[in-house]
């Protein structure tokens, strides 16, 4: 039986005592995000063709696409950042940004006005056909 039960931990404790804090001093020292960090979903409104694939793929129904009003809506508090929409997007207009979305007190939808690119004018009748069949 050892004489002093604290002996095994002493070196670590002394080291910790004289080393700087292991925690980040948050408001002073900003956290570092990596390029891969899943922060929030961003959309390039000029590339989107309102195909609604992202809304269909979303497991938490956070994304809503209004084809008639040309709106793309996302509810940030519902989004779980699985990036399913980013991988599903055929036009690659959805991207993952590494900054977290800001905290909110009220759950709201973030609404984006979509200005479809010129080829979308051709694609639109095709989309309408889809809805009628």
């Amino acid at each position: 039986m050892p004489i002093n039960p604290f002996v095994k931990m002493t070196a670590t404790i002394i080291k910790s005592l004289f080393s700087p804090s292991a925690c980040k001093m948050y408001p002073v020292e900003k956290p570092v995000f990596y390029a891969n960090t899943r922060g929030h979903i961003a959309i390039q409104t000029d590339k989107c063709t309102l195909c609604t694939l992202c809304a269909k793929k979303c497991p938490t129904y956070a994304i809503m696409v209004d084809r008639n009003a040309k709106l793309w809506k996302i509810e940030r508090t519902k989004c779980i950042m699985c990036l399913n929409c980013v991988y599903a997007c055929p036009k690659k207009c959805l991207t993952n940004e590494n900054q977290y979305s800001s905290p909110v007190t009220v759950k709201t939808q973030e609404v984006f006005n979509i200005t479809p690119p010129a080829p979308a004018q051709v694609a639109e009748p095709c989309g309408q056909k889809e809805t009628t069949t």
Partner: peptide, 24 residues
């Protein structure tokens, strides 16, 4: 002390996969 070490591993996860807990 154990959890202090674990934090570095979570940082590796975040750097390589983007998530700290759920990697996807």
């Amino acid at each position: 002390h154990s959890w202090k070490i674990r934090e570095k591993i979570l940082d590796i996860f975040e750097e390589t996969t983007g998530g700290r807990v759920i990697f996807g």
